[in-house]
C-alpha cells in the first residue's frame, strides 16, 4: 500500500499529463475545475489515467457523481444544498471533505469539492479495499 504522499505524487503526475499543467501549479487544495481548468471531458480522461496508473476500476459516477443533484428538489432548494442533500453527499462521497462546504452549502460551490486531495483520498480508499 503506497503512502498518502506517494499517492498524491502519482495523482499530480496524472493531472500534469491530462490537463497539461505544470507540476508546481498543483497543490492538495487545487480545485480541478477552478484552479486547474479541467472541463467535463477531462474528467473522463483523468478517470482513465487513474485506472491505468493505480490498477483499479473506477465505476461510472463514483469519483465524479454527475447526476447527484440534477433536478432533485429534495437535495437543492433556493440554490442551497439541503440537509438531505448533504446526507446524500456524505453517503455517495465519503472521501470528500465537506467541513467547510457544510457551513455555507451553495450549490454552485459543489465543483470546489473536487480537489487534488479528494482524488488522493478516493484512491487511498480504493487501494485499501483492494
Amino acid at each position: 500500500m503506497p503512502t498518502q504522499e506517494e499517492i498524491f505524487k502519482k495523482v499530480s503526475a496524472t493531472l500534469v499529463e491530462a490537463l497539461n499543467v505544470d507540476e508546481d501549479e498543483i497543490s492538495p487544495s487545487s480545485t480541478l475545475n477552478g484552479d486547474l481548468g479541467a472541463e467535463s471531458i477531462d474528467f473522463l480522461d483523468i478517470v482513465f489515467r487513474l485506472e491505468r496508473e493505480f490498477g483499479i476500476k473506477i465505476p461510472r459516477n463514483e469519483l465524479f457523481p454527475e447526476a447527484i443533484f440534477q433536478g432533485d428538489a429534495d437535495f437543492v432548494k433556493d440554490g442551497k444544498v439541503t440537509p438531505k442533500g448533504l446526507q446524500e453527499l456524505r453517503e455517495k462521497m465519503p472521501f470528500a471533505d465537506l467541513s467547510s462546504f457544510e457551513k455555507n452549502p451553495e450549490a454552485t460551490d459543489l465543483s470546489e469539492l473536487f480537489t487534488v486531495d479528494l482524488i488522493a483520498r478516493y484512491i487511498a480508499g480504493k487501494l485499501q479495499a483492494k
Binding site: 471531458i41 473522463l44 480522461d45 478517470v47 482513465f48 485506472e51 491505468r52
Partner: peptide, 10 residues
C-alpha cells in the same frame, strides 16, 4: 487503442 469505456475511448 489505449482505453475503452462506455463513455469514450483513448
Amino acid at each position: 487503442l489505449q482505453h475503452m469505456a462506455p463513455e469514450g475511448a483513448s
